[in-house]
Every structure is written in structure tokens, then in C-alpha cells.
């Protein structure tokens, strides 16, 4: 489930990157590449696990699935937080700089 949720996050962020003209300003490349990087890594993990467990890999216990889903959503939230911090640090429209210098 973690792998699936991360792949969906990667696909959605890639579509947003493709559609938006201000992708560079929004630093959307970071979000896409981060989720794709994690997806590839978890895919590798899944392949190794499949090699070990066989078909049993596709029939996890309900509690494991729930825990993995919760983890997947948390991973997406963490990824979005990393992206948000980098975006605010970049501050492409100078909103934070302006707020800090004018005190508003």
C-alpha cells in the first residue's frame, strides 16, 4: 500500500507539473522527483520481498494493509511538507521577505 500510495502521489504531482506553466516557480520538479525516487526504492523493496514470499506478498493481513496505508499517507504528507519548506525558503514571489522586512 505504501508503494501504491507513493506511486499515485508521483503520478498526480507529475500531471500537475505538466499542466502548470509556473512549475519552476512552484518548485514542482522537486515534488515529482522526490515521489518518483521513493517509488523506485519501494518498488525494489517489493521485488525483493516478492522473491522471498512469492504469491503470499499479494495477500497481506488486513491489519498490515491498514498500517501500510496509514504509513503511505504519512509519507505523502512528509513529502508535501519537505516541498512546502523548500518552496517557502525559495520564496519566488518575495512574499515572506516582504512580510519580514515591512513587519506585515
Amino acid at each position: 500500500m505504501t508503494l501504491l500510495i507513493t506511486i499515485f502521489a508521483a503520478i498526480v504531482s507529475t500531471l500537475v507539473w505538466y499542466v502548470r506553466d509556473d512549475r519552476r516557480e512552484l518548485n514542482l520538479g522537486l515534488l515529482c522527483l522526490m515521489f518518483w525516487g521513493a517509488s523506485i526504492m519501494w518498488l525494489t523493496d517489493a521485488i525483493f520481498e516478492y522473491a522471498e514470499l512469492g504469491a503470499q506478498y499479494f495477500t497481506p493481513a488486513a491489519s498490515d494493509m491498514l498500517n501500510d496505508s496509514y504509513l503511505g499517507i504519512s509519507v505523502v504528507a512528509l513529502g508535501l511538507m519537505i516541498w512546502l519548506v523548500s518552496f517557502l525558503y525559495k520564496d519566488p514571489k518575495g512574499v515572506i521577505r516582504k512580510a519580514l522586512t515591512t513587519g506585515r
Binding site: G29, L33, M34, W36, G37, A38, M41
Partner: peptide, 9 residues
């Protein structure tokens, strides 16, 4: 970005 992001997650 892929390596750092993936490793962090």
C-alpha cells in the same frame, strides 16, 4: 532530488 527525496521518505 530523486536520491535525497527517496532516501528521506
Amino acid at each position: 532530488k530523486m536520491l535525497w527525496g527517496g532516501s528521506a521518505l
